Computed example of a mutant assay.
Amino acid sequence: MLDPADVERAQRLFRVQRRRAMVAVGWLFALVLLLPLGFEVWPQLDSMRVWGIPVSWLAVVVVPFPAMVFLAVWQLRRAERPEDEA
């Protein structure tokens, strides 16, 4: 069981971390939704090729995964910062 002061601190940390997580989730949704939108806006990406592979396919493989790793690391650091300060 936590002391009342610890409960308040834990709730405050939870709220801060939840807000920060929502920002990261928003960026993730933007990444997932904007990639297909980009293919719709620029259909010529299907006909452009690098090493014989359509640029749109390369974008599906190369862009999301490093971006998700970056978002995960970024979010982890942002989530830990309030704990270190408190």
Rank of each mutant, 00 (worst) to 15 (best):
residue 54 P to T: 06
residue 78 R to V: 10
residue 5 A to Q: 09
residue 49 R to T: 15
residue 57 W to Y: 08
residue 53 I to F: 09
residue 52 G to R: 03
residue 48 M to R: 09
residue 19 R to T: 01
residue 14 F to Y: 10
residue 8 E to I: 02
residue 47 S to M: 02
residue 11 Q to L: 13
residue 42 W to Q: 06
residue 3 D to L: 10
residue 61 V to N: 07
residue 53 I to T: 13
residue 65 F to H: 10
residue 4 P to W: 04
residue 66 P to T: 09
residue 32 V to W: 04
residue 46 D to Y: 12
residue 56 S to G: 04
residue 64 P to W: 07
residue 69 V to H: 08
residue 76 L to R: 13
residue 74 W to G: 07
residue 68 M to D: 05
residue 4 P to F: 08
residue 86 A to M: 14
residue 43 P to I: 12
residue 12 R to C: 01
residue 36 P to F: 03
residue 42 W to N: 02
residue 15 R to Q: 11
residue 17 Q to N: 06
residue 5 A to D: 11
residue 76 L to C: 10
residue 46 D to F: 11
residue 80 E to S: 12
residue 45 L to K: 02
residue 85 E to L: 15
residue 9 R to I: 06
residue 72 A to F: 02
residue 44 Q to L: 02
residue 77 R to N: 13
residue 85 E to K: 11
residue 23 V to I: 15
residue 48 M to A: 12
residue 6 D to V: 01
residue 4 P to T: 04
residue 48 M to G: 01
residue 38 G to P: 03
residue 86 A to L: 14
residue 86 A to D: 13
residue 64 P to C: 08
residue 25 V to G: 06
residue 11 Q to C: 03
residue 8 E to T: 06
residue 36 P to Q: 01
residue 4 P to I: 04
residue 58 L to R: 04
residue 18 R to S: 11
residue 57 W to A: 14
residue 82 P to W: 11
residue 57 W to F: 09
residue 6 D to A: 12
residue 43 P to H: 09
residue 22 M to Q: 10
residue 80 E to I: 14
residue 62 V to A: 15
residue 48 M to Q: 06
residue 56 S to K: 12
residue 60 V to P: 00
residue 81 R to Y: 12
residue 81 R to G: 04
residue 29 F to T: 08
residue 2 L to S: 07
residue 47 S to F: 03
residue 31 L to T: 05
residue 32 V to D: 01
residue 37 L to T: 07
residue 20 R to I: 01
residue 67 A to Q: 06
residue 63 V to N: 12
residue 29 F to C: 12
residue 36 P to W: 02
residue 30 A to R: 01
residue 86 A to Y: 15
residue 57 W to P: 00
